[in-house]
Design a protein around this nucleic acid. Structure first.
Lengths: 348, 348
DNA sequence: CTGAAAGCGCTTACAG
DNA sequence: CTGAAAGCGCTTACAG
């Protein structure tokens, strides 16, 4: 309400210079323990809170590097858009994004080229790195730890490098995605014979989706009637759907937990099973929306890639500026999308 | 990438003082048209963008007043929480909230006391007002227009004062709420006999919900089998449910478009119709979640009151600082909530 | 109509 | 270990 307490107020109170107060408050060296204690205590008493606006006006530019291994068409692009949005918002705070080469293929690149890209970005003088590693690789862990030694923190996104010194792992909430998928299918058909299609069980994110899916079904005493891998490939998804329906003609619903639901939809339409077999899939894109509109897909679970990118940047910024460590696992919750509300997630 | 262009850069380029450049850029008086044109053109050429951080450091405190007519238990409280969050975020930008008396009852107060509260807040020297008018009243319109004359803009929230000079009306997207309600019920039961309960048709927000609901049904060539008013009263809702089921035993689903779905749920449970009659209601609160967990309610449409408050404050801030007028109608989109994802909306 | 100077609150480089 | 001074980029009050 009344005027905010400033560093100057504290310095007057204690007959010290603003510089000394600054050093005490920021844990900088060249100050006696005694003075530091006194300043900190007085700051607390007066209710001092640093003015972040003034801080950012005076500091030098913070550079945050962004490096992707595999680049997954729509999903990764939306992550980048989210990052760009965050960088834009933080522009006046002297924050700057340094992107590595984004023209990488949608399959994991070879380790050496990824690492050389990473080092190129590091050498441009970044203060932190946001890294999408795609696969778990020894070399990544080693590099992240070396950077940590040098005082350059890393945040992993989408995929993780476990056992490395990354300060956080930001990703979509896979378990909740699976959970919602199972719950929606249970609401959409009472047969209870639901299958799940997923890219590859070895990918951490994908296995989490399966976990969430089966756990929710289990609560009603059920199991998935089938778990099929599609390798995120449209043709595989197409033929897998065919096989599923031959093996389990009683199937009531399919949850497509990763990309390439279009193969499933195509086959379901060809077989004339639209609406008879309920489909729930992930992520709002023009193709999925089309199938939603023609009633092939009943609901879409949007994983908010845009937010993954935005939150990753903001978490790194906060860490660099305030030193506050984000939770190791930063989970972005998905949204449920039906015919009535997809537009909000489509236009960007 | 390279260093940002500052006012000082422009002044050097043109051999003018920073003050003059400032006046030109900000449309301040005491400057020749010629100089102004030159400065603006040069700013454009150099790609000048004002640094908002520096701007906010130098300006004097912006005060935003908040006044409610009726205060609706959970919903209004969450709006306030959203506002507090926004004020907190903007604290370093020298923004301050000035709340009027919030201990008003959950029914519309009398005009005089609301207006005197409003004027009290105005007299504390606010730069803008956020006002929840609850009912459409001549006097409100007059006051808002007088404030506008004095240069104090008003944003209305939840309810509107149409034909007044408020700069924007921020509210939940009622049409989408109704739309989603109808679509969910259509997905949850194929009987197609769906009813809607609403507080009072004369309330603008409520009538928008009905509009969205009927429009979505219409797309499948259907109409609501019944539209009942509850006056947002639990007992009325309870007995209305009874009557609905006597008059239309074939009812497949009920959408409760405003507060007090608990009356409906209680009756449905007593009649042993849980799950047979599908229920979709609005807003995540402990009571509604309980009924969601025990399968009386199938889905909740959360109207995000928190966001209504947050966005209202941020819209006003942006207007006061940048002069950018928000859209007259700022609509906050609802979220679809089921068993799997209510927690995010419950804890605040 | 134009400008020099001080100030917002914190940081930094320099001197002691 | 402590402090005086300049600076970040814009605003304001004052002088001309």
């Amino acid at each position: 309400m009344s005027k905010r307490v400033t560093i100057y107020d504290i310095s007057k109170e204690l007959n010290l210079s603003a510089t000394t107060v600054y050093r005490a408050l920021k844990g900088k060296p060249k100050i006696s323990d005694e003075t530091r204690k006194l300043v900190i205590e007085t700051a607390g008493r007066l209710g001092y809170k640093a003015n972040r606006v003034a801080q950012s006006l005076t500091r030098k530019t913070i550079k945050i590097g962004v490096v992707f291994d595999g680049f997954h068409h729509g999903f990764s692009k939306d992550i980048i858009k989210g990052m760009q949005h965050a960088f834009n918002e933080l522009m006046d705070f002297k924050v700057e994004g340094v992107y590595g080469d984004l023209s990488v293929p949608s399959t994991p690149s070879d380790v050496k080229s990824v690492l050389s890209e990473l080092m190129k970005v590091v050498e441009s003088g970044v203060n932190g790195i946001i890294f999408e590693p795609w696969l778990i690789r020894e070399e990544y862990s080693k590099t992240i730890n070396e950077l940590a030694e040098k005082g350059i923190p890393t945040i992993t996104i989408v995929s993780d490098v476990p056992n490395s010194k990354r300060i956080a792992y930001v990703r979509q909430n896979g378990k909740m995605v699976g959970d919602i998928g199972a719950q929606l299918l249970a609401m959409l058909n009472d047969k209870g014979n639901n299958a799940i299609f997923i890219g590859n069980r070895d990918v951490v994110m994908h296995s989490e989706v399966i976990k969430g899916f089966t756990a929710r079904l289990k609560k009603s005493g059920m199991d998935p009637i089938a778990i099929y891998e599609t390798q995120d490939d449209d043709s595989i998804a197409y033929y897998a759907t065919d096989k599923l329906l031959r093996d389990y003609p009683q199937v009531g619903g399919i949850f497509v937990g990763t990309a390439h639901s279009t193969g499933v939809c195509k086959k379901i339409n060809e077989l004339g099973l639209r609406q008879k077999v309920k489909i729930v899939c992930t992520d709002v894109y023009p193709e999925t929306v089309e199938y939603l509109e023609n009633n092939t897909i009943q609901a879409i679970i949007h994983q908010e890639p845009y937010k993954v990118g935005e939150i990753a940047v903001k978490s790194m910024y906060k860490y660099l500026v305030e030193g506050t460590l984000p939770d190791k696992d930063v989970l972005i919750n998905p949204k449920i999308v039906i015919k009535s509300n997809y537009e909000e997630y489509l236009i960007k």
